[in-house]
């Protein structure tokens, strides 16, 4: 059905194709090589690693992982150390809440702007474009201050609200997909007596659910990996990403081995990698954004 599949006779004919494929191949190798190197390293003893940095482990051991599981911890003021299971729990809470706000806020706002013909909607669209273009730099200090002033500092829900802007590319992604929906379904539903709320939840949402899924998955991944927010705003809710940062950069843990640090990296990466593998097909072709003219 699709015509854009590359024709096999086109392959190898032009320098462009060859160069592109070679680059793609080189990139793959360059990315996977350190990854596999790290994987092997995590099963080595430190002595083995020092003497045989590049090769396969002379003996596969699980000790590094066991050590990480027992010792991966981050300190919380007035509480003491928080360990890996609790940090995973914090990560899940933080990631789910932020994903919700970060997916939901632009969703409702984009729907209002795209599907209702009010002058104010144009204004909101203008805000999105202006904020996208207007580079505001260096307001982290102020942001920390404001979060403390409104009581969102060190508050999981507060931080999730703080992170849930409607502006940004997510708005544009939703906006593009709402705009591509024809308007007749709405009118039809109205005639059937559906309320606006019902139209949004029963009619529109199912139509754009793939887009929602893609946005949510992307947010989920980026919040899972984000350690700076937990570091700056959530001193008493260290997430696993922050725990990893702390574990690998703190002088308290400097005695631990390279092999252990790499094992910690692996342990933190595995869950999100599984999530991605399960949902990766949801990411195809739903992420188009329009231009920024307007």
């Amino acid at each position: 059905m699709r015509t854009n599949k590359i024709q096999h006779d086109q392959l190898g004919k032009s320098a462009f194709t060859v160069a592109g494929l070679v680059l793609l191949f080189l990139y793959t190798v360059s990315f996977l090589a350190p990854l596999f190197w790290a994987l092997f390293t995590s099963f080595k003893t430190e002595l083995d690693f020092m003497r045989n940095t590049f090769g396969f482990p002379s003996k596969f051991i699980l000790d590094n992982y066991i050590y990480v599981f027992d010792n991966l911890a981050a300190p919380v003021p007035r509480v003491g150390n928080i360990y890996i299971v609790e940090m995973f729990y914090n990560s899940i809470c933080y990631t789910v809440l932020c994903t919700l706000t970060h997916t939901f806020t632009p969703f409702i706002c984009a729907y209002a702007v795209a599907k209702f013909d009010f002058k104010f909607g144009k204004f909101i669209y203008g805000i999105v474009i202006v904020t996208l273009i207007l580079p505001i730099i260096g307001n982290l200090a102020s942001s920390i201050q404001v979060s403390k002033a409104v009581g969102f500092y060190d508050n999981l829900f507060g931080v999730a609200i703080m992170k849930g802007y409607f502006i940004g590319t997510n708005f544009l992604i939703y906006y593009a997909s709402f705009k591509s929906l024809p308007n007749d379904f709405k009118e039809a539903a109205e005639i059937d007596g559906a309320s606006q709320f019902q139209i949004l939840t029963r009619v529109v949402t199912p139509l754009v659910k793939t887009t929602i899924g893609a946005v949510a998955l992307l947010s989920f991944i980026s919040y899972w990996n984000d350690y700076t927010t937990a570091m700056i705003y959530l001193p008493s809710r260290p997430t696993i990403a922050y725990g990893l940062y702390y574990f690998t950069h703190s002088s308290t843990n400097e005695a631990s081995y390279v092999t252990v640090a790499i094992a910690a990296c692996m342990l933190v990466t595995i869950p999100i990698f599984i999530v991605f593998l399960i949902f990766k097909n949801k990411l195809v072709g739903n992420m188009a954004v329009g231009g920024i003219k307007g």
Binding site: V79, G80, I82, E86, Y89
Partner: peptide, 10 residues
């Protein structure tokens, strides 16, 4: 998680 959440290792 949150119901059983009180028993994290500390």
């Amino acid at each position: 998680f949150s119901l059983g959440g009180c028993q994290f290792r500390r």
